[in-house]
Design a protein around this nucleic acid. Structure first.
Length: 415
DNA sequence: TCTGGGGTCCTAGGACCC
DNA sequence: TCTGGGGTCCTAGGACCC
């Protein structure tokens, strides 16, 4: 029988910060999302304080200050780099690594040797070579391996590795796992399943396959099969090319005018176009969207988006901005407080020769500007500000937050 | 005051065709 | 009384993931 292993980095963003600042070990730590809006990574100590994934920062601020929780603005350039190191380490164990996300990868193990022992070895090597602690789940299907890793993360006696190869072990483990913890059961499906008296993962494994297929669709039917150790998914070793590139941000403050939105949309389009060129692609379609603040329920709400076809596949910023502005004029309505805009590029194709030449030209300019900006930063703050330069330097205090000798300056400085 | 951002896949229903 | 039946393509919306 095939044995899948899921390698899942523990509290990944927090663990990355700890690699560069070991004094954070054993202390509560959280990492915040882009605009410092939400909590997106928590150390075990922060979890124990009751801080939830996705909690708005401002709502937990009092708790955070009371317990002296260390707070970090997300540094995705750093996390991407650390992720790369983890994946490279896995490559030294087997060439066939299915990188599932920034902090997870699937691989298959040799079923002749002791699987749990192999899991332990992987764990030790990653910790030693990268400093990142991981959990390993081993099972006959990807979904069961995910569940096993989930249990490994929480169980002290598992020592980071759980193997679920036999039906007996699978049933025992799934009977104690809430159905909502299963990969493929999200916040919408979980209450619906509860209403059908499907509470645990074991209940789902034993549910009527045709009923599930008919009521909830193909994806959940596959999840049920996978829970029964019937593999529906294999390793994805040659991922298909990306289908879309998005750049979206919420604004710092509400925006009401078309010209204000135009500025934001132009800047987002520029970012999306840069990502496009970086991947040597061009786009056939552009979608622009705007919306009001969905949390302000007392205010009138408006959300709209429009997709435009480009006359020719393009990755040229000015052309894409023109298109985005044309779309924006069509969906803009007076009288609303806008809160967020997004630009999506789709219908992605490899860039042609003309586009490559334009790219080379602009890339040189960008590179020069980036280097001079980094040089200035390094002179002011010393080394290690490189990640920040890549992030775009949207807020002054962000610079300080990335500088390793200025940890005390990590909290936002109010104007 | 302050509530992230970037992705994928599936399905139902309408339009249209023969 | 009884009002085809496939097939395709497209789109919006819903669900999920990290």
């Amino acid at each position: 029988m095939q044995a899948f292993a899921l390698i899942d980095c523990n509290n990944f963003f927090v663990s990355c910060e700890r690699v560069f600042n070991p004094a954070l070990e054993g202390k509560p730590v959280v990492v915040l999302s882009n605009n410092d809006g939400c909590i997106i990574s928590r150390s075990n100590e922060a979890k124990a304080l009751g801080i939830q994934m996705g909690d708005p920062f401002f709502k937990t601020k009092a708790l955070i200050q009371a317990h002296q929780v260390a707070v970090f603005s997300a540094n995705f350039a750093l996390y991407g780099d650390m992720s790369h190191r983890v994946m490279e380490t896995l490559q030294t164990i087997t060439p066939d690594v299915d990188v599932y996300s920034i902090d997870e990868a699937f691989l298959t193990l040799c079923n002749n040797a002791d699987l749990t022992e192999q899991g332990r070895n992987i764990r030790q090597r990653i910790l030693k070579w990268t400093g990142i602690p991981v959990s390993v789940g081993i099972a006959p299907t990807k979904t069961l391996a995910k569940a096993a890793a989930e249990i490994a993360k929480k169980s002290a006696k598992a020592e980071g590795v759980v193997t679920l190869m036999s039906a007996r072990l699978q049933e025992a483990a799934l009977s104690r796992l809430p159905v909502a913890d299963i990969w493929g059961v999200g916040r919408r499906l979980a209450p619906k399943l509860h209403a059908q008296h499907i509470q645990t993962a074991l209940d789902l494994r034993q549910a009527d396959a045709r009923f599930i297929r008919k009521t909830y669709g193909l994806p959940l039917a596959r999840t049920v099969s996978e829970l029964r150790a019937e593999a529906c998914y294999s390793l994805t070793l040659n991922p298909p090319p990306q289908q879309s590139i998005v750049h979206s941000r919420s604004f710092g403050m509400p925006m009401s005018t078309l010209s204000g939105l135009q500025q934001a949309v132009a800047s987002y389009t520029g970012r999306a176009a840069a990502k496009l060129r970086h991947q040597r692609l061009a786009a056939c379609y552009l979608t622009v969207g705007i919306r009001t603040n969905r949390f302000r329920v007392t205010e009138p709400q408006y959300a709209n988006s429009i997709t435009l076809e480009l006359p020719m596949a393009s990755n040229y910023t000015a052309e894409l901005i023109d298109t985005a502005h044309r779309g924006l004029r069509q969906i803009f309505q007076h009288g609303y407080h806008y809160h967020k805009a997004s630009v999506m590029l789709s219908g992605l194709v490899p860039m042609n020769e003309r586009q490559v030449n334009l790219f080379a030209l602009r890339d040189t300019e960008r590179y020069d500007r980036l280097m001079s900006a980094m040089d200035r930063l390094n002179r002011v703050f010393g080394g290690n500000t490189i990640y920040l330069a890549a992030e775009g330097m949207q807020k002054p205090w962000r610079m300080k937050s990335s500088h390793r000798s200025h940890w005390s300056a990590i909290m936002p400085v109010k104007a």
